[in-house]
Design a protein around this nucleic acid. Structure first.
Lengths: 338, 338
DNA sequence: TTGTAGGCGTTATCAC
DNA sequence: GTGATAACGCCTACAA
């Protein structure tokens, strides 16, 4: 039941492994007769080259390591799908790991991936990885391409390519669309200040309102931590207990927006008449909730594919990708909640 | 920037790689002095053993190959999370692949995994893999453990371990609970007849009704293919256009159930007063929809963990697992739709 | 206590 | 046209 090797074939044909190897590679120096005999036996024995040996020989594993801060979100699994599709299409495998929001684990996983001789590393980091960016900068090796997906982390000296969705424009489009519809009192449920993603959306939110000469009420801008439905409910209640109630609640995630919807319904507010609710990501829950949730679509699958293309452009065409920053278009998806 | 090898350390210390290797393995034959010197240099050079070389040497990769028919469902990503947790905990990596419901691709992926020298293969097969079970049986190798998750496939000669959720008991509990509540006219939206999962739930559905001496109306039992919300809506409309309308619709998946809910609401039926709706899986959409969906919880994360434990019991303790069939408890989750 | 050499499976550079 | 051999990085039985 052991796998057949070149040696086995060589023995069977009373020749050497060198000849067998060459024959299987269709080396012109080998006679057609020998080639045929080798191929025949190879087929008979169901010979398959040993990829571990090849990895050792060529110092390449045709493997990428991928780290997700979680796989428990629709958006992240969409990215995984995209990564897988493009990777397998190009003959690469993916070793997948989940850090569960733990930046320390992310650093460890990166080290492990290097030890595994992966040909590249892609990471959807937790928000907190930014606090460990100095350690990260020291760990990252220059000879193995590294791509950061969805977030942006700035280093002292190193240049690392990023791939994100265009949350700035996405937010701007969403907000200005609502402004055009006549909404005026905008609230935002954002993430923590340490999140690059949250900050971009926050900036876009502020600047879009400012450009349209709308007042910005900072009591209507609050942060959530866990991005859960429960948190969304709680924060919505908080917002609706303000003297001057919002007529738009722009949320950091779809799940938070769903929580907001629930809270609003419980309190008897009509959506979108009294209050419009806008989510972010376009996950599978948007079509499920009532009213169906308007949101800003992030192209997860495409981002995954693009990430692999990017890393392969470095590996195959030796392109310098260290300066690359890919920003993928988002799209406003209007449903019933706005 | 090249990784340091035993050779580098040996050269630095004017000794041989054998000595270095032994010193690093704390071999008692090596003098303490040499050990210290080796360790020092190893640390200095940041030596890390080359796992590819070890794989080649020991014919083990500490890697499992995992195949998912899709990663686009909450349940499957829960399983992935469980697999990852337990695998990394035990020092194993996961190479992940997605077959996109294509049984041919599944067979190919299995072959590829063998060529990669994985130490085990786990698969959540597509329904259609059963049609290729003869080919599958021929492909599966006896020296690499193989585990089938979520579905059951029966072979001529080979014995393969399965791990599934107890859909029979889950269905029975769900249905009998509804019977106790006074519902009488049960409809089922099941999957195709070629699906082992669907059939188990179908059997449990029939037998539970029979045991409670309730009439079985076969016009109320219909199949869906894509498990989408749209299909759920369509089939619900079909069911509600029957002369004798059902007062329960038991669905093959949560997403289908959500479609049913939408259709019922559009037609003005009240849930759960006029019609109760029961889903399957307990995915994240259940709490999102209105009314919140009652469902039968499948323990995805636990199934993933258990699968790894199973395969490791074969690898580490040499246990024969070929006859194992693990059936994990489900749990009825009652929410607003029943 | 340490060194030598063979082998894991492959490719590539020499010879012949 | 084919064979022998070194090398990839590591471990280990056997020598010394």
């Amino acid at each position: 039941m052991k796998r057949t090797t070149l040696k086995d074939i060589a023995k069977a044909l009373n020749t050497t492994i060198a000849t067998v190897s060459r024959a299987l590679h269709d080396n012109p120096e080998i006679s057609d007769e020998m080639k045929n005999r080798v191929r025949e036996v190879a087929k008979l024995y169901d010979y398959k080259p040993n990829s571990t040996a090849l990895s050792l020989k060529f110092q390449k594993s045709y493997t990428f390591g991928v780290i997700f801060f979680t796989l428990n979100q629709y958006f992240t699994t969409q990215i995984l799908s995209g990564l897988l599709q493009e990777a397998t299409k190009n003959g690469y495998k993916l070793i997948v790991a989940e850090s569960n929001y733990d930046p320390k684990k992310e650093l460890e996983l990166i080290q492990e991936f290097y030890e595994l001789n992966v040909d590249g590393i892609l990471i959807l980091p937790s928000r907190k990885l930014n606090t460990k960016r100095f350690e990260l900068e020291n760990i990252i090796r220059d000879d193995v391409p590294f791509v950061i997906i969805d977030r942006t982390i700035y280093f002292e000296k190193k240049k690392i390519p990023f791939i994100t969705s265009d949350d700035y424009v996405g937010t701007r489009e969403g907000i200005s669309h609502l402004i055009k519809k006549g909404y005026k009192r905008f609230a935002q449920i954002k993430g923590l200040d340490s999140s690059s993603i949250s900050n971009i959306r926050y900036q876009a939110f502020l600047e879009t309102l400012t450009r349209h000469k709308l007042e910005i009420d900072h009591r209507k801008i609050i942060s959530c931590q866990e991005f859960t439905k429960e948190e969304g409910e709680e924060l919505a209640n908080q917002l609706m207990s303000l003297e001057d109630k919002p007529d738009v609640i722009f949320c950091i995630s779809d799940m938070v927006a769903v929580g907001v919807l629930h809270a609003l319904r419980k309190k008897g507010y009509r959506v979108p008449e009294d209050v419009a609710v806008l989510g972010f990501s376009n996950s599978n829950i948007c079509e499920v909730c009532t009213p169906q949730l308007s949101t800003i679509h992030q192209p997860g699958v495409e981002m995954g594919k693009k990430s692999i293309k990017l890393i392969l452009s470095n590996i195959k065409q030796k392109k310098d990708i260290s300066d690359v920053k890919i920003v993928m278009k988002t799209k406003l998806i209007e449903r019933e909640s706005t």
